[in-house]
Amino acid sequence: MSDPQYLETPQGRRIAWHRTEGQGPGVVFLGGFRSDMEGTKALWLEDWARKAGRAFVRFDYSGHGQSAGAFTDHCIGDWAEDAAAVLDALTEGPQVLVGSSMGGWIALLTARAHPERVAGLVTIAAAPDFTEDSMWAGFDDAQRAALERDGVVHLPSDYGEPYPITRRLIEDGRAHLVLRAPLHLPFPVRFLQGTADTDVDREVALRLLDHATGPDMRLTLVDGADHRFSDPDCLALIGESLEAVISRAARAG
Rank of each mutant, 00 (worst) to 15 (best):
5 Q>K: 10
9 T>N: 10
10 P>C: 09
12 G>H: 08
13 R>P: 00
14 R>K: 11
16 A>H: 02
19 R>D: 01
19 R>E: 03
20 T>Q: 05
23 Q>D: 15
23 Q>M: 09
24 G>I: 06
24 G>E: 09
24 G>W: 03
27 V>R: 02
27 V>A: 09
30 L>D: 07
31 G>T: 14
32 G>T: 06
33 F>P: 00
34 R>Y: 07
35 S>I: 05
38 E>N: 12
39 G>C: 12
40 T>Y: 06
42 A>S: 12
42 A>Y: 01
43 L>R: 12
45 L>M: 10
47 D>H: 02
48 W>V: 14
49 A>W: 02
52 A>V: 10
52 A>Y: 02
53 G>Y: 12
53 G>V: 06
56 F>R: 02
57 V>F: 03
58 R>D: 11
58 R>L: 06
59 F>Y: 04
59 F>G: 02
63 G>P: 01
65 G>M: 02
69 G>W: 06
69 G>E: 09
70 A>C: 10
79 W>H: 01
80 A>R: 00
82 D>N: 04
84 A>C: 14
87 L>W: 02
88 D>F: 04
88 D>H: 08
91 T>V: 11
92 E>Y: 01
97 L>K: 04
98 V>Y: 04
99 G>E: 00
99 G>V: 03
100 S>N: 09
100 S>A: 11
101 S>Q: 03
102 M>Q: 04
105 W>L: 00
105 W>S: 00
108 L>I: 08
110 T>Q: 07
111 A>W: 04
112 R>T: 11
112 R>C: 10
114 H>W: 12
116 E>T: 04
116 E>K: 05
116 E>C: 08
120 G>P: 01
122 V>E: 03
124 I>S: 03
126 A>G: 09
128 P>Q: 09
129 D>M: 10
129 D>S: 13
130 F>S: 01
130 F>Y: 09
130 F>G: 07
131 T>W: 07
133 D>T: 12
133 D>M: 03
134 S>E: 14
136 W>I: 14
137 A>Y: 03
146 A>F: 00
149 R>T: 13
149 R>W: 02
156 P>E: 15
159 Y>E: 15
165 I>H: 01
166 T>G: 09
167 R>L: 15
167 R>D: 13
168 R>Y: 00
171 E>P: 10
171 E>I: 08
173 G>M: 11
174 R>H: 14
175 A>Q: 14
176 H>P: 11
178 V>A: 14
179 L>C: 10
180 R>E: 15
181 A>E: 13
182 P>Y: 12
185 L>I: 12
186 P>E: 03
189 V>I: 13
190 R>P: 10
191 F>S: 08
197 D>V: 05
197 D>I: 03
200 V>I: 15
203 E>W: 03
203 E>S: 15
205 A>I: 04
206 L>H: 10
207 R>D: 05
209 L>S: 04
209 L>W: 07
209 L>Y: 06
210 D>R: 14
212 A>C: 15
213 T>D: 13
213 T>V: 10
214 G>K: 05
215 P>I: 07
216 D>L: 10
219 L>Q: 11
220 T>M: 10
220 T>G: 08
224 G>M: 09
226 D>M: 07
231 D>Y: 00
231 D>F: 02
232 P>K: 06
234 C>K: 07
235 L>S: 06
238 I>Q: 01
243 E>G: 14
245 V>K: 07
246 I>C: 12
248 R>H: 15
249 A>L: 15
251 R>G: 14
251 R>P: 04
252 A>G: 14
252 A>I: 08
253 G>W: 13
